[in-house]
Design a protein around this nucleic acid. Structure first.
Lengths: 268, 268
DNA sequence: TAAAAAGTTCCAATTATTGAAACTTGGTTT
DNA sequence: AAACCAAGTTTCAATAATTGGAACTTTTTA
């Protein structure tokens, strides 16, 4: 809830203000920001002015309120296109969702959290930002556990201590030891479950998306409700999901490093 | 193509770097940025480091490339939710798309450009470059013209000179005089056409979304191809679209200013 | 109408930014 | 294998920006 105190100079502080506005989730008055800001009035005021000038915040002069600006939406579209798996995985995911007839999620790690970058719902197709951009906990979601299970120890040591281990349901893993054990199981098994650990009645199977070299790029999950399917029924879909995950991993490598061919030519 | 030279202190300069990276549309090396940056090496280097620390850029240590970071996607989700019409208009647009059986776009102005914030495609996706977060020209799109037609003169004087007036098709309006005349027609008519002005074979009708007080909040369009429908056929949909636009405008006012009722009560 | 709160500006002390240059690293050529 | 080149990274004193207390103006509340 408190500010980051990121330390990254002026730019870091200004970006903290952005997060603060985002946290409100609604247009916010200057005084409201001031009340819980570590910065003195004049400093915060200049930040807010600068960000507004820059289009990162929008100002409603009738109500004197600030909200996140449209420049962010524009930038995010570019971010989504160039640094997420979503555009690469797009067609693969659609096909997967059609085949399995259940909701498919595509996620990546964002610091210690899970960031959903795409979603395919066979019932009703939805627009991009409504779903993409949402964040969730890593320790109690299928995609989160799938990614962590294949991360190197160094990354895990950063990420695991940042988990809240809040008990959402009776089945939520609520401490590091239980999570570590689960991650080992997942690695052995080759995929992760979410057995109602985040939401009662919601289960999923998830697989990591690995680059050919074995780096964790993201994760893929198929979600359903206990009313529709059992975990063992979900498990039968794993080979199909694995196919999709592998194909995305390969494509991602090719897409991100398209110049390796011309480079080899030069070398020859 | 050149940098903004925004002037807004350190923060503005750093944000310019973000735009620069976005403009590449692919992971970019430090040297590539340096080559066309107004900042000296060390300065640019620190910007890029700061932005990476902050999660606004992501760094691929295997390839030494920078891309837009996932924090942007997260922030944009919040921006989309709190400062765009999209969440308000969501259900209305879905219903409209179902009723008319054609692609529906929801757009807002972003400086002098059109920002598409949502899209609903009932059936086969026609090949077009438009998605949430994408920007387009104002002078040759239905939504752009619809918004401009109801803007105050002051805003127009800012926006119109910034139009490129690039000729996309033989029917594109290519100067301010033609555009001004068209805007007057649109105001009289009550809605805007896009008669293959941006893409050959693509036509649409567009209506502004106005607040009850008459402020331009955005625009709504129904798009099709000349192969499917004629302009006059499209025109028959206008009353239905108008209904949708009005309802969104009313809802938006209520949502953005939910306390105006209690205020009137207090005043009375 | 008065009082209080919110929003805005000012300016000297402070602090961070700046950028030329030196240094390190990784890869390519001789 | 050594030398070379280019890309990436760090250093540090001069410079220029940020900082924040306080005063000021505007808007809201009593």
């Amino acid at each position: 809830m408190a500010a980051n105190a990121s330390g990254d100079g002026t730019v870091g502080k200004a970006l903290d203000v952005l997060d603060q506005v985002a946290a409100f989730g609604r247009p916010v008055r200057f005084a409201e920001l001031q009340a819980e800001s570590p910065f003195p009035k004049a400093t915060l005021y200049r930040f807010v002015q600068t960000l507004t000038n820059q289009g990162m915040l929008s100002f409603d002069r009738e109500r004197n309120t600030y909200a996140l600006g449209v420049r962010l939406v524009r930038l995010a579209h570019a971010a989504w296109e160039q640094s997420s798996l979503a555009p690469i995985a797009r067609d693969e995911i659609s096909r997967l969702a059609d085949d399995v007839g259940e909701t498919v999620h595509l996620a990546q790690m964002d610091h210690a959290q899970v960031l959903y970058v795409d979603k395919r719902d066979p019932e009703r197709p939805v627009a991009m930002f409504s779903q993409a951009g949402k964040v969730g906990p890593a320790y109690c979601t299928g995609v989160g556990k799938a990614m962590m299970a294949w991360l190197d120890e160094e990354s895990l040591c950063r990420i695991v201590p940042q988990q809240s281990f809040h008990r959402f349901t009776p089945k939520t893993l609520t401490n590091e030891i239980a999570l570590r054990k689960e991650l080992a199981n997942i690695r052995d098994r080759g995929f992760a479950y979410d057995d109602e650990e985040h939401e009662p009645g919601i289960i999923c199977v998830a697989l990591p998306i690995l680059s050919p070299r074995g780096r964790v790029l993201g994760a893929l999950s198929v979600t359903t409700s206990t009313a529709r399917k059992s975990l063992s029924e979900l498990e039968t879909l794993v080979p199909r999901i694995r196919l999709c995950a592998q194909s995305i991993g390969t494509e991602a490598e090719a897409w991100r490093f398209p110049d390796q061919i011309s480079k080899e030519v030069r070398t020859a």
